[in-house]
Structure formats: C-alpha cells, structure tokens
Design a protein around this nucleic acid. Structure first.
Lengths: 338, 338
DNA sequence: CTGAAAGCGCTAACAT
DNA sequence: ATGTTAGCGCTTTCAG
C-alpha cells in the first residue's frame, strides 16, 4: 500500500502539500493540486485511517452500545445509526451490553482507548459522572431510548407517557370498561413513563384498582404469565395495555392458550411498533415509536457535536402514533376515531 | 490521559520495559515489573489502541458485514460474532451492505484503511479475486451463510440441501401428497441448495411438476403472493415448503386471508428457525439452522486465523434440525417421527 | 503557496 | 534484564 510519502515523491512535492490536498485545507496551487491528485490516482493511494487517528485525534468511528441486538426493538435503531454514519463516511463499532452497567463501562473504556469520535448508548445505568468523564476526554455521547434525564447530555426518546395515554384512550373508545396494564422493569424510564400514562387516564375511573397493573419484564414470556395472573385476579377485564409489543404478544399467546377470543372478549394494545406486531394473529394494535427516526436523529446529533464541538444538551421526545389493528377491533368501527 | 512515557518515567524505567510488561513478552525482572504495574495503576494508564495499531499493525478490531440487520435472520449472527469477539477482547465494526456488491467493496476498502484485523461477511458477490486481494493485504476473511464456494477462504453455512430434504420428507410423513415449494432468490446459494433439496425428494413422485416451485423473494410479502399464485395454478396442493421462515409466514398470512385452514387443509414448513416462527398462529414448523453457532464459529475461525496466521480454507456445513410445530400438525401424531 | 520537521503513543529490533 | 532508537503514516505548526 502506498503511503503519503510515495505520493509526495511521485508528485514532486512535500508530504505537507499532499496532506493539504487530501484534506482540502489551506491553499494549494491548483496546478500542484492536480499533480498530487494524479499521483494519488496512479498509486491508488488511500490514506491510512489509523495513522490519521493517531496524528489528528479523529478516527472516523463512532460506537453504538445497545442492550441486545436480539431484542427486535434494536435492529431498527442499529440500522438507522449505521445508515446515517455510513452516509457521513463514518464507521460504527457495535456492542451488546445486556443492560449491565459493568459491561457498559467496560465498553466505554475500550472505546476511549480506540479514540472513537463519539458514542451512542441505550443505557439506564449511565449517570452524570460518567458523562462528566467522557466530556473531559472530549468524547461526545448521546443517550438513546433508555437513559435518565441527564442535563449535560443530549437524549432521544419518544413520548412514552403520552403514548400510553393514547393506548388506554383507544381501548376505552373501543368499549373497554376494565383495562389492565402489563408494565416493564421499573428501572427503565420508558417503562415507568408508560405506567404513569396508564395511571393518568384510568385513575379517575370507578373500576380502577392498582391490582390491574402487573409486571411483565418486557418479554414474551413475561406477558404470557402476566395475563394469566391478571385473569386470576380480575376475571372481568376486557382490555389490556402492554408496555411493549413483546409483552403484548405474550398476552395474545396466553389468551389463545386459555381460549379467550381477541378482540371479542378482550382487546389488546401494545407499544413500540416493531414489525413482529404485524404477524401475530390477530394482528396487534400498537403505539408505534418512530424507531428508525430515533436512531437517525441520535446519529445526526452526535455527528453534529463531533463536527462542531458544541453539544445541544436537550432531551427530545419524538411523537408516537396509534396503529389500530385487529387486536382492538370492534364491530361497526371502520375508521379509527383517536 | 497518561502515556507510556509517563509510566516509564514514574517507574524509573524505559518505555521498552513498560511495553514489555503490558504485552507480557520478553523477560522482565519481577521487581521492575512490579514497579511498572504500580506506576500504571497510579496513573490509571491505559495503552492507546490507535498508537498500538499504527506501530504494531494489529488494531484489535474485526468487522462484520451483513446484508441487513433488519432481516430477523441476522441479529443472532451479529450477537454471536460480537459475543465471541468481546470475549477475546476484540471490538467489532458493523455494516449493512443491502446485498449490494458495490457497498460491500466500499466497506472492505474502508476496513482495510482502518487496519481491521479480519472480516466476516455474508455476501454473494465476493469472488476469488476479492479474496486474493485481501490475502495479499494480510486481512483474514471468512464467509458466512451466503457466499460461493471459494476454495481459498473459510466459509460457514448450514446443511441447506439436507435440510430441505428433511422438510419435504416431514411434510410427506404428515400425509401431504402434493407439496409446493416457494424459493428464494437464486443468486443466493442457500436458496439454490434448498430448491435442489426439494427437487431431490419430489422429482421421482408421480404428482410432481415443475410448476410447483415458485419464487418468493425471501420476504413475507413474497411468500404471501407466492401462495396465491400457487393456489391458482395448483388448487389441490396440501403442503408447502418455503425456502425461509419469512416466506412461510407470508404463506400463512395468505392462507389466512383466503380462509384456508392450516394445518388441516394445507401444511406449511419454513426454514431458518428464527424466533418469529414461534409467534405465528399456528406456530410454524421449521428447519432450524444453528444461527448463533454459525456466527460464533465464524468468529472463532477468524480469530484463530488472526492469531496464528494460518487459515483453514474449508467449507463447513452445520447441521440443521426439524422443529415440528402446529403448522404441520396431524391428528394422531404426538411425537415426531423424522 | 509550499516545505521542513516535530510529534501523536506505541512496538520492535538492536545494543548493552 | 533493560535501554536506545528508529520507525508506523499522517497532521500541523512554523518558516520561508
């Protein structure tokens, strides 16, 4: 592989000049520039990113740390981040943290040593001090989806609480008179907000009781168990709002096991809008987050900070939308009223 | 951030000695080593990977290029690769190629410039010359899932042809007497092999006709369309073997649209064993590939080659297994006979 | 507008 | 066993 020196020699200029033309900075006589370009072409020269990283402190690499790419919510995020990065000529390092603070911190340490230009992470353990350290080392970071409200760092989420309200109101408008909620792990702010949203609308209603909310661990199995528990405690529920689609799918499964017809006897609404929701039977009504957009936005904000050095430490909550499907269907309603 | 020089100074030794202790090579007096370790601890020193990469030609980074992480088949591969890489202290760069040769080559070029230690790629466009180039640049590569049989490069796939036979035989054993096949894009060797496997077993049978095999593009929509086309041409089919789970799910959807009961009237079997197959109604019988193992194996082989410099250019075909579920259920059969 | 030269932080001969 | 030193390939003052 040719080096910058080879190019300089062939073009009859110094390496500094070559560096100037490949980086398009400083002034270079267009004649000389042309010579250099010719030499580059001739030698098939490609600047070495590692050397560049060492000399210039910019590696053209960002990192994306997610809890688990196997969770169907995350691939869309990953795709979005990678798309935007690739478009900007950046490369992305990817890691699974399993939601473990230990692993997250270990990744972050490694990434610093690699001089990554920035980090996007979906984590609920990252705290203000971590951010502080990163900031001191000049490593921009943006929080995605999960993540506390840290005022010193940009964070992208969606309207979880509002979305939850939307879900419950939808169920209400479809005739439900006793709506349960299956919630996710309360250490996740997303799960907490959705529970709050549920409470916001049901708390005033006469049928409401705290025992209508049960945990489901954000996974299919959890949803399945939750619905069974729920039915034991409150056999007359006619609507279920699950804190995410996975649990909603579990609930659907559980109801199917029990021979309870959906949506006739019980209506179910999920949250997230992952593609799985379209393949269940009945298809799942859900509150869709703009998952891809969230990832893309995170990447854009990160890249902007990398390029300008200034960070907009703001928390952005993207809009969610109700996607009515079979699982909340009701006779005589063709168009959604929400 | 402290550098190796700071450590050397504080420990009262030369940088070479420090380098020796952090790399555990050469001989170092345990006394001195101890001093060095103490200094490292004291300064919170972390070796800079970029400098290391430049000096030593090893960056501790491998790359994984997949067609599209949104396709549910790939996350498990990604998880596996990242898991073993992480375990070995390596970091993984991730990219989506969309199956485009252009994008693949562009990634490969970028990765070379970054001195990645090795590449794992699921591609059907990579050819012997590409491999040759990489080899010349000392960049180990392993092909995963898709990918032609290139004798100069390790490749991991599963028993596609055998698996297809297994599927068709299973359908036969469940009483099907006219089995159709929905196949994937024939530029993919996996799709081709599965079609061959189908033909292997049906070709001799009296009901067989080539029009029983139709394309489905490896996606849900394609499967849905395929089943409808099939039913027009051959209304009396009673079994369908889809070349992957996505198309099988599409077929299930299509049959549901048409009001044709599965498995009573038509039985359906997929291929891949992605988790989606468990959430359909009825649940989907499928030929499961050991997806995670495939990814893990690819990573291990790559890492071995990186460490030893010797490559085992062999094509490995992992075993698949039939997972019988509701979609091929038959009265009076409790245990699978295959 | 262009070149010389000093690093970036580390590894790896080569000495001692 | 340990130190010296020359790079790895590029960026970036600082002169000219």
């Amino acid at each position: 592989m040719a080096t910058i020196r080879d190019v300089a020699r062939l073009a009859g200029v110094s390496v500094a000049t070559v560096s100037r033309v490949i980086n398009k900075i400083g002034n270079v006589n267009s004649e000389t520039a042309h010579q250099v370009l010719k030499a580059i072409e001739q030698l098939q020269y490609e600047p070495n990113s590692v050397a560049r990283g060492l000399a210039g402190k910019k590696t053209g690499t960002i990192a994306l740390i997610l809890p688990d790419i196997l969770n169907p919510f995350f691939p869309a995020l990953a795709r979005a981040v990678e798309d935007v990065a690739h478009q900007e000529g950046l490369t992305v390092i990817f890691g699974n943290s399993d939601g473990l603070g230990l692993k997250e911190r270990s990744y972050i340490k490694t990434l610093k040593k690699k001089y990554v230009d920035g980090i996007i992470i979906a984590s609920n353990t990252v705290n203000p001090e971590d951010i502080e350290h990163l900031r001191k080392d000049q490593v921009p970071i943006v929080l995605l989806d999960r993540g506390l409200d840290i005022p010193t760092c940009p964070i992208i989420r969606s309207q979880n609480r509002e979305g939850a309200k939307l879900a419950v109101k939808h169920l209400l408008s479809r005739g439900c008179r006793k709506i349960a909620h299956i919630y996710g792990p309360q250490e996740m702010i997303t799960a907490r907000e959705r529970l709050l949203g549920y409470e916001d609308v049901v708390e005033g209603l006469d049928w409401y009781s705290p025992s209508l909310a049960v945990p489901g661990n954000f996974d299919i199995e959890g949803g399945r168990k939750a619905i069974k528990l729920l039915l034991e405690r409150q056999p007359d529920i006619d609507g279920v709002f699950a804190g995410n689609d996975l649990m909603a799918i579990g609930a659907l499964k559980g109801l199917h096991d029990l021979g309870i017809p959906v949506p006739e006897r019980i209506k179910v609404c999920g949250f997230d809008g992952i593609s799985l929701a379209e393949i269940t039977e009945p298809e799942l009504t859900t509150i869709a987050q703009p998952i891809y957009e969230m990832g893309a936005l995170a990447a854009k904000i990160l890249i902007r900070e990398i390029n300008t050095g200034i960070s907009e430490n703001t928390i952005m909550k993207l809009d969610v939308t109700l996607i009515p499907r079979k699982s909340t269907w009701k006779e005589g309603i063709d168009v959604d009223e929400a």
